[in-house]
């Protein structure tokens, strides 16, 4: 029992240690990644553009649901003009960064882990090392950088589309006044306090998700079983990390 606990502790700290050393090596390759900007753009395509459809569609639906639910609650108090506030604040502060991050973990994170795991199992990473090219700089760094750049953009798109989803349901279907919807929203949402904090959150999420994803891929056992496990771990761990970090960041930002 105690032994099992100790074993778990050792393996956890070992994992954390490898994770951090890995990050330091990768970060030292950011400059090289920026120099190879074509690679970076290709990675932005994979993590950003290919996640765009799911982000836009879910953003719109989440916004519409918020509009519907918010309206049903607010109309009891005769405060349906505040619908814009409810929709936009929930999206900009929480749902935009968090839901976009969870979708990103499922879409891009798992794909990154599988891709890098496959490169490892087919000896491509080893082959690069043998060609005196550091795969941490050449393969991992541009992917991590692309994740950090793409995530806030995706979250912003999610929030913006979501606000229009709420607007569509609220004013189009439920008859909330158009002007009140926007003006109350503008009065209540603060750019520095709300929008910027949401963007900062999503940058942190993008970093953590991509970090976990590329590390799991790099650290995987080079077998098909190992890769499938690593992919699952990426989605589970990065989703948990996002939710936990969201709490911490919210506590720090909106005290």
């Amino acid at each position: 029992m105690i032994q099992a606990l100790g074993k778990m502790g050792i393996s956890t700290f070992g994992w954390l240690g490898r994770c951090c050393i890995f990050l330091v090596y990768v970060a030292s390759g950011f400059f090289i990644a920026l120099k190879n900007w074509r690679d970076l753009i290709a990675q932005l395509y994979f993590v950003g553009v290919l996640s765009l459809v799911i982000i836009v569609v879910s953003g719109f639906f989440v916004g519409m649901v918020l509009g519907l639910q918010g309206y049903n609650t607010l109309v009891d108090f005769g405060a349906e003009e505040s619908l814009g506030v409810v929709v936009s604040l929930s999206l900009v502060r929480e749902l935009g960064p968090v839901v976009a991050a969870l979708l990103f973990a499922g879409r891009a994170g798992s794909a990154l882990t599988a891709e890098i795991g496959l490169m490892k199992s087919t000896e491509q990473l080893m082959a690069m090392e043998m060609m005196a090219v550091d795969p941490l700089h050449r393969v991992i760094a541009p992917r991590l950088l692309a994740g950090i750049i793409a995530m806030p953009l995706l979250a912003a798109i999610f929030s913006a589309v979501g606000v229009y989803g709420g607007y569509f349901v609220g004013t189009g279907l439920l008859g909330v006044d158009d002007g009140a919807f926007w003006s109350q929203m503008q009065a209540a949402v603060d750019f520095n306090g709300d929008v910027m904090n949401g963007i900062i959150k999503s940058i942190v999420f993008g970093f953590v998700i991509t970090w976990i994803a590329v590390f799991e891929g790099y650290d995987t056992a080079p077998t098909s079983e190992g890769i499938s496990r690593a992919t699952t771990r990426t989605v589970v761990n990065s989703s948990l990390a996002v939710l936990a970090l969201d709490f911490v960041l919210t506590a720090v930002m909106f005290d």
Binding site: I41, V49, L52, S88, V92, A160, V161, Q186, F191
Partner: peptide
């Protein structure tokens, strides 16, 4: 094609931030 779509993606993302700044929050007022 990849470069173009990435360009569109980044433009969309920045446009979304501008929308959040101008239309949703009080930056404009």
């Amino acid at each position: 094609t990849v470069e173009t779509t990435v360009g569109v993606f980044i433009a969309l993302g920045l446009a979304a931030i501008v929308v959040l700044a101008m239309k949703v929050s009080n930056m404009s007022t």
